[in-house]
Nucleic acid binder design. Structure first.
Lengths: 217, 217
DNA sequence: GATAAATAACTGACTGGTCAGTTATTAACT
DNA sequence: AGTTAATAACTGACCAGTCAGTTATTTATC
């Protein structure tokens, strides 16, 4: 050991990307097995560290949960908002971007398991649920409601209770995400093509919202 | 104590309704706190017995889970089927009965928490999930698909991929049920009236499915 | 109809394993 | 040397599942 041997290269420890690695590992395990059934030893192992290390970055299992949501989801909202303004003059196009964008940016990724996770655990972790409601659901709703209202103002959509309709319109997307993270995994379903599902759904919605009896896009 | 005093009435032990009392207690707790977070001591206490007694009737926690589904849900399917045939000649009316009936018979009751429960736990309990898929989801889907196909045959609905549409149409109902058992409970939501939600939704669906451009029911 | 024997329903203390969270120790780097 | 990062062994609470023992109810016997 005349000089520092090159153990360091293969080891490559002590990064500051550690929290992200941990939240990423936690996300996939939480989504896969649920919060309660996920052991912190597993999370740490998947991130390539020990459980003690996990506690250097997060105070508790619940704090890790909150971080998973915060790091994983909140950035997506802003990204989605930016994509939307690109078509601000065409409500039908905006709605399409919203729904399909939600799916490709969120639902189809690993984050698509988060609605299942949040729904399951909302009652057990009210603070996380409130955070999610405030930072994710409500902004998302507001965004879609703006799209709908604009469509009505332009005479493209018929008037509706847009607060209710935002909920209703999100449901099939959420359902698809939940399905893929529950029954689709454990039962061998005769599979459901997301793209066909989305197209069929969007078609239904457009006809359901259309303003004029024989209106056309 | 000249003759047998009526001690029996207040005591009222040794019933054979015991399993039902246990599954009822388990249902409400599973729905409220999730499967993993529910302790069997609690279930037993809510049913007014000890944990040992619970094990006289059910082999394991998972067996109790399966019983909850079997006893609670499967009977509802048949009941629903009977209600439907009453309007077999009017597809629009049938669809309305289906959706509103689902809500009043199932979604609005304590059983409305079961979708949340099943979604959360499907991956952890594949056998229960497969049972639920086979005995609940698939029959329910088949029933609605029949309604849709009949509507198309009668020229009331436009042709669609009815297998996909059944999924899509169920989503807002499931979403409402999930919502009421998650965020609605823990966050004080600005409340969402189920009746208004259902009416708005049904209106949207009918216009989305209508066959003729200016068709009218 | 009483008394005793047999059985069915039930209990709660106990066990064994699990797992969130802690801490004493070691390795890495400056 | 001292400081920081990481670990692995440890602790203690928790809980599904068990079982020896208790209490209620029925059946048998006189």
């Amino acid at each position: 050991m005349t000089e520092q041997v090159k153990k360091k290269a293969p080891v490559r420890r002590r990064k500051e990307a550690r929290p992200q690695e941990l939240t990423a590992a936690a996300l996939s395990l939480f989504v896969e097995k649920g919060f309660a059934a996920t052991r912190l030893d597993e999370v740490a192992a998947r991130a390539g560290v020990s459980k003690g290390t996990l506690y250097l970055y997060f105070d508790s299992k619940e704090a890790l949960f909150l971080a998973v949501i915060r790091e994983g989801i909140v950035p997506i909202i802003d990204e989605g908002r930016k994509l939307l303004v690109a078509h601000a003059d065409d409500p039908v196009r905006m709605l399409r971007e919203y729904l399909f964008g939600w799916w490709s940016l969120f639902g189809a990724t690993e984050l698509g398991g988060v609605p299942k996770l949040m729904t399951s655990e909302a009652q057990n972790f009210p603070e996380v649920a409130q955070y999610y409601l405030r930072e994710v659901i409500q902004p998302g709703k507001a965004l879609m409601q703006a799209v709908l209202d604009r469509g009505v103002a332009k005479g493209v959509f018929r008037p509706t209770d847009s607060a209710l309709v935002t909920h209703i319109l999100m449901a099939p997307l959420l359902h698809l995400a939940l399905w893929r993270h529950s029954f689709a995994v454990c039962c061998q379903v005769p599979d459901m093509d997301p793209q066909a599902y989305l197209e069929t759904y969007f078609d239904l919605v457009l006809k359901g919202l259309a303003a004029a009896p024989e209106g056309g896009v």
